[in-house]
Design a protein around this nucleic acid. Structure first.
Lengths: 200, 200, 200, 200
DNA sequence: AATGAATGAGTATTCATTCAT
DNA sequence: AATGAATGAATACTCATTCAT
């Protein structure tokens, strides 16, 4: 029976939103479709008009996020040429994005393991492209003599891990604003922690 | 019926080891006690001679790791007084530990969510003590004028996140040894990436 | 929304044909209306413009077949008076019909069990009329002294079962034509298998 | 919880018996494991201590029957050499077996379609061996000049179909005993129905 | 300390059917 | 006459856990 005023696209959006929240809170395996249906206001079976399997829902959620991430990164870096400036823009973008899209980001890391091989590979490929952008920036800087590291790839991994850790403790009502956090991390990434470098 | 030659302590050790592997691979929720029993060579029911619930198994695994982590950190830092030297020792220890105890470390991050409130709190308290050690080192350095950061706590979080990210990509047969990796990370943490700091 | 050029009667015929094929292949219980709709090129809901329930579809399919069977039998026997000649005509008709309408025949036997009581009774009544025709022929022959059996009814059942078994193994491209098969069965039915009857 | 006095073999036997009855009555697809569990006096999940899937239960039931059928046929024919006498023994055996094991026999025909390909092939192979025995008897008789037919294989199929049809109408309380039915069918199979063979 | 049979609650998914559009 | 979104009940199967043996 079609509920008066129901609408496919609107329902799918509600499923997306509820799914994001439930997976963020309980994890993909622990979230049940009963919970999801209740949250959306549907019967369990009706969910299947909008996705084919629970796995597909997870994949769509993560995929949508990854594509968005890459697109917005592209925008954030466009028009900037100098490696150090690009690095600065990357850090700023990454912190802001991870703070505003906390749930998507968290899920995209923590639920990778629940993706079936084919889906897993698709996501990891996109993640690789994101990492490659940063690795490229660092390599360019090294070539230009303005960035220094023994291994651009490992440095990129380290930097991304550091910045991404924010989602584990950031609270919107916390003691620091997003911009302050970005500044602190940028300082760490650029200058390091130690004043008298001879000690290193 | 007691199988000839069976032995309680030995069985528990086998459960520990198998559980570590299965949770690392599939996640706590996704690991079934049937899998665990098969791996250990028991029937499902027999597992309950060694732990009371699946939750207890997870908790013991993580707790054991956290206690070990803190004890070893203590050893690694003992006898070192200077903050910068302590920081150096911390980084070295953390990288080495995370590389050698990859599964325990990974689980202790990713399965926190599956712990029941009481157990969760107990673990988070220990994790807090670990973070506090690093925060203390940084604060001491700032007071001594040899470390520079706007927020010792956030810097500690950032550093730990950066170093911990290693478990996501480290391969024992990879292109870098543990010591090389530690050196690269130490350099990043101490000096930052940018050569000409005026650009920041 | 009415698809351009769609036509009620044509659609119903397509449903009939697809339903016949699917039930023959998978069985009534195992055939889903989703499969049927896909085969016909409709959405599930649209099927209900052509029948009221899945059960009704099955009933109509079988009923249509039974009525047709009886009507064609009538034609095949019309004008023949002698019991042995009528028996011969019956066998020839039954074999030919079962070979050409394999799917209908098969379903009408195997899916009887899936009919609701009322529908079941209606079909079994028609089947009884078909069996009665053969029983009558045999009885007439016995009365006339040209057919011999201890029980006309059981003989009729046995003969029908023997002939109907054809649907289980007949292949249009097989080693025998329909006429050859009919001849072999007629010989068996008329003369039996054993040459020297004293052995029986 | 192990019910006091419960026993694996006894439970499996109860499942077998109940499964036979339910599949005979409703068909494999229509029988639910809820019904089966209720009939046996277990919870649904407990059934899975005794078979791995519903399909496996069906397969075991049919396989057990087919092996039994072949073993008993062997016994029934052992020590008989003359083809006509073997034919007589076959008919007698088949009728008696099909009357006493009505449910197994019925299921083994009607649920063949529900078997997965691998299982299906295993059963059809055994059925083929049964048909081969009869085909062999008829061929031997033809070679000896005591049996007459244009096609031993088709005659075997026809005879088996005729005899097997009994399961569709036989009632233990009916008007004829098993032995009478066997006699009537033997007469039909041996001598045919028609007195004056010139009419054929 | 281990087994094997049981529980009971739960899981994702499917199905025939309905009905506003 | 067809669609697409919904229902509600059911389905096979799984899971952590229990306990008599």
């Amino acid at each position: 029976v079609r509920t008066v005023g129901s609408n496919g696209a609107r329902t799918m959006e509600a499923i997306r939103e509820a799914g994001l929240g439930l997976i963020f809170e309980h994890g993909y395996e622990a979230m049940t479709l009963r919970q999801l249906a209740t949250e959306v206001g549907l019967q369990q079976g009706s969910l299947y008009n909008h996705f084919r399997t629970k796995q597909e829902l997870l994949f769509k959620l993560i995929m949508h996020h990854m594509e968005n991430l890459l697109a917005e990164l592209d925008t954030a870096l466009s028009g900037i040429a100098d490696p150090v400036e690009r690095l600065s823009a990357f850090v700023g973008f990454h912190v802001r994005y991870h703070i505003t899209r906390r749930r998507e980001v968290f899920i995209s890391y923590s639920e990778l393991r629940s993706l079936e091989p084919e889906n897993y590979n698709a996501i990891v490929a996109l993640r690789g492209r994101y990492e490659d952008v940063l690795t490229g920036i660092i390599s360019d800087g090294v070539a230009a003599g303005t960035i220094r590291t023994a291994d651009a790839r490992i440095a990129a991994f380290g930097l991304i891990a550091m910045l991404s850790g924010i989602v584990n403790w950031y609270q919107p009502k916390g003691r620091r604003t997003a911009d302050e956090i970005a500044a602190i991390y940028k300082e760490m990434a650029f200058c390091g922690l130690v004043v008298d470098k001879r000690a290193a």
